[in-house]
């Protein structure tokens, strides 16, 4: 978090030094600050920050891919599948040990990934109730969420 502040500070200084303040100049300054933090990570103690930034980038890529796949899936279900071939049902997903913010992020991402939407977060933040279109194999859905989403979210929040 301290390293993020330093990065932001460098960006603002760069913005003040540039001849014409613009969004591009701010982005340039931010990138420059990031490069500085990467080069001097021993001195500034920003190794953890670098790790988190790369993990966040990786998570965003994974999430974007899942989101596109979800949309292709929805279009296919809507246009080509009959009602009779759907087996929708609720399944539960255990999120014990995650912080409330991580549960929030996870439930948001689940709503936008293929085949599942979040229906309920229990009051103790331990269980998510999901609704899936094909609930024949709940443990496969859980394993997939564990493998794809939970791991990449935890890699940058911890």
């Amino acid at each position: 978090m301290k390293s993020f502040g330093v990065n932001l500070l460098i960006a603002v200084i760069w913005l003040l030094l540039s001849a014409e303040p613009s969004v591009i100049a701010f982005a340039m300054g931010f990138l420059l600050g990031f490069v500085l933090l990467a080069v001097f990570q021993r001195v500034l103690g920003s190794r953890d920050y670098m790790r988190r930034v790369f993990a966040l980038g990786r998570f965003l890529l994974v999430f974007a891919w899942e989101f596109l796949a979800a949309n292709a899936n929805v279009v296919w279900v809507v246009l080509f599948r009959s009602k009779e071939s759907l087996h929708p049902n609720f399944i539960t997903y255990d999120v014990t040990g995650l912080k409330p913010f991580e549960v929030l992020l996870l439930s948001y991402c689940i709503s936008l990934t293929p085949g599942s939407t979040t229906v309920q977060v229990t009051d103790d933040f331990r269980t998510l109730v999901l609704h899936t279109l094909d609930a024949d194999n709940p443990s496969a859905v859980r394993a997939r969420l564990d493998r794809v989403l939970k791991r990449s979210i935890l890699s940058f929040t911890r």
Binding site: F67, A70, N71, N73, V74, V77, V78, K83, L86, P88, S111, L112, G115, T117, V119, H131, L133
Partner: peptide, 13 residues
């Protein structure tokens, strides 16, 4: 889609 919850899939994504 047949019921409320399935429809919410289509809307959300």
């Amino acid at each position: 889609l047949p019921d409320v919850l399935c429809r919410s899939h289509a809307v959300a994504k």
